[in-house]
Design a protein around this nucleic acid. Structure first.
Length: 584
RNA sequence: GCGCUCUUAGCUCAGCAGGAUAGAGCAACAGCCUUCUAAGCUGUGGGUCGGGCGUUCGAAUCGCCCAGAGCGCGCCA
């Protein structure tokens, strides 16, 4: 069952192109740029004309004449320099929507060759407070994870904690400096631990000998020193608890809570492989792998520092090996900001030289940093610090509370229900604000935007869903049922046409690893629904058939919107309550 | 110095396997609650797509040059 109108036309075009002996790579349509003229457009004639040095309108007319023989088109015309404009019959669009409503996947297909993919996102560091900079990786990763699963791939997500580098030595050194030993470590909670880290950071910045001490302790820890290791375990445990808490608030989930430390043993193997293959060498006391320095010179990968410790190159390379050997993954995707581009180029090249991941696709999805008001530098709060995630969420929730009734004011909505609703809306605002941006560009963090609920926002979409829920509840009470979809009003037609795009949208988001494609579509769909909602009364439709049709269209829209929000990692509350005196 | 990325409406961003009048949201302005939740809807104004040259019938989109910005460049992660 093919539930995509676009593909139906594409299939017809493919046949026609074969028949006319035209280059089939151009046999496709896209959603029309000119909805006033058509539903879909095909630009093939322009491209073909260029190659064949012919008149594009001539080729366009040839294709259009063939297409006219198909039974699903209302009208076909060749316009402008050679655009083929295609308008579908209302019945075809209506029938398609009916089928979508019957399909449990709402017309969305699966990938042809499902495979196993490891997604590496999040990457928070032990002992460091999570701040807005951690938002993107987690939010994008969670969405991609859901999209990949939905299209049929097997996903293993890994938080990949920063838990094994010099910062660990720094914080241990700081604790020893204060307490004289590590006896009290196990009594420290996350607040104290992050405080130690802050102090250590300041100290190491200005004091060379402190850095030296930290390095020594790091090396001891990595060598398996029992005392340091035990202390480290406590630090890691407390941090993980706090990190899990933060991610839970945002509904960001991981299958694995591995970190750099898990790769430690494998690091040794990596070094051995490098030596056996003769691709490592010692340079200035460090063991390195030189990379191609042809057209694009790259610094070497440092496997072992001159003090004997491993670098994050080594742990990342080792982690690739573990994911390939232990998890049998066929693809690994990393989500980090653009500052790590060179790092991953180096790691991927080294992995290739070491031949530890043959036939495994390694991909680095790069996103821009979350910037402050100047649009250039990473976001800082007014006092110069970074804003932590918890504060951000609380600010957004406070704003939501202002527009919600108090607990008990609405029947069935006590404190717990209101609190849940508050957080669902606040988190939707935050996540959508992030996901609507294309991944690769950075974006400006406007504090106000994260507490904005009008326009292109998460709550706007939740609101559309809540309104449909409300109508459906009332229709049920009134004994009205959904029925066969008929499209008469332009608003009905536009809605059904938009719904038909869902499969392609999901597939594009999947292949580009780009949730913003879904965010954009979801907003557009909610918008078209709102227009329909205002123009086409459902319960009060002129005939029972029309009412049944509109209710079905609304229900399908609701289901698609909910699915899209799910893929973005955003919840859809059943209702959106309103405070009594709102907006007056 | 070398490399990568970026510059589109007052603001934040889409659009870029070249194509028909460059799109959203916010902000501004004007309307719409006796009818399914106004977190909504309808409409208006606002852009020589950083600058220049080139390729092309056609360039925001491709190439070159210039200006401005950001990021990165062996022992931090």
């Amino acid at each position: 069952m093919n539930l995509l109108l676009e593909n139906k036309i594409n299939a017809a075009l493919m046949d026609i192109f074969k028949k006319l002996d035209l280059n089939e790579q151009f046999a496709f349509v896209k959603v029309s740029d000119r909805p006033d003229l058509s539903d879909f457009q095909c630009n093939a004639a322009l491209a073909l004309a260029k190659i064949a040095h012919k008149n594009p309108r001539e080729i366009g007319t040839m294709i259009a004449d063939e297409l006219k023989k198909c039974d699903f088109c209302e009208s076909i015309s060749v316009d402008g320099p050679g655009f083929i404009n295609i308008k579908l019959k209302n019945e075809v669009i209506a029938q398609n929507a009916d089928k979508m409503a019957e399909d449990e996947r709402l017309g969305c297909g699966l990938v042809e060759n499902p495979h196993k993919v490891v997604l590496d996102y999040g990457g928070p560091n032990v002992a460091k407070t999570m701040h807005v900079g951690h938002l993107r990786s987690g939010v994008i990763g969670e969405s991609v994870s859901r999209i990949e699963r939905f299209v049929g791939n097997e996903v293993i997500s890994d938080v990949h904690l920063g838990d094994w580098g010099t910062p660990m030595g720094m914080i241990l050194a700081e604790i020893v400096r204060k307490d004289g030993n590590l006896n009290k470590v196990e009594t420290y909670d996350i607040v104290q631990i992050t405080e130690f880290y802050k102090q250590a950071n300041i100290r190491c910045k200005e004091d060379e000998s402190a850095r030296e001490t930290a390095r020594l302790i790091t090396a001891k820890l990595q060598d398996g020193d029992e005392l340091y290791y035990k202390a480290w375990q406590h630090l890691r445990g407390e941090s993980v608890k706090a990190i899990k808490d933060n991610y839970a608030r945002l509904d960001v989930n991981f299958d694995l809570w591995w970190g750099e430390s898990n790769a430690h043993e494998t690091c040794g193997k990596i070094v051995k492989i490098a030596r056996d293959k003769g691709i490592s060498e010692v340079d200035n006391g460090a063991e390195i792998i030189r990379l191609e320095e042809g057209n694009k010179p790259k610094p070497p990968v440092i496997l072992i520092k001159s003090d004997g410790g491993y670098t994050y190159h080594t742990t990342d390379i080792a982690t690739i090996k573990m994911r390939v050997d232990d998890l049998a993954t066929e693809e690994i995707v990393y989500f980090t900001d653009s500052r790590q581009t060179l790092h991953f180029e180096q790691v991927f090249e080294a992995a290739q030289k070491l031949e530890i991941a043959p036939n495994v696709k390694l991909q680095h999805i790069v996103f821009g940093t979350v910037n402050g008001a100047d649009g250039k530098k990473p976001f800082k709060t007014r006092d110069g610090g970074v804003m932590d995630l918890e504060t951000l969420i609380e600010m957004s929730k406070d704003k939501v509370r202002q527009s919600l009734p108090k607990a008990g004011e609405v029947e069935g909505y006590g404190e717990a229900e209101i609190e849940k609703l508050t957080s669902q809306i606040a988190v939707a605002a935050i996540k959508f604000q992030d996901l609507k941006n294309t991944i690769n560009s950075g974006y400006v963090f406007e504090l106000d935007d994260f507490a904005k609920f009008e326009g292109k926002t998460g709550p706007y979409i939740q609101y559309a869903i809540a309104r449909i829920n409300s109508v459906l509840r009332k229709a049920e009470t009134a004994g009205l049922k959904c029925g066969k979809i008929i499209l008469e009003a332009p608003e009905e037609r536009a809605l059904a046409l938009k719904l038909a795009q869902v499969h392609n949208v999901v597939m594009r988001a999947h292949s580009d690893k780009e949730p913003s494609i879904i965010a954009e579509y979801t907003y557009g769909l909610a918008q078209i629904f709102s227009t329909f909602y205002n123009a086409c009364p459902m319960m009060g439709a002129s005939t029972p058939q029309l009412a049944a049709s509109r209710l079905k269209l609304a229900k399908l829209t609701r289901d698609v919107l909910k699915l899209m929000l799910y893929l973005l990692g955003i919840e859809a509350p059943e209702v959106m309550l309103k405070a009594e005196n709102k907006g007056e």
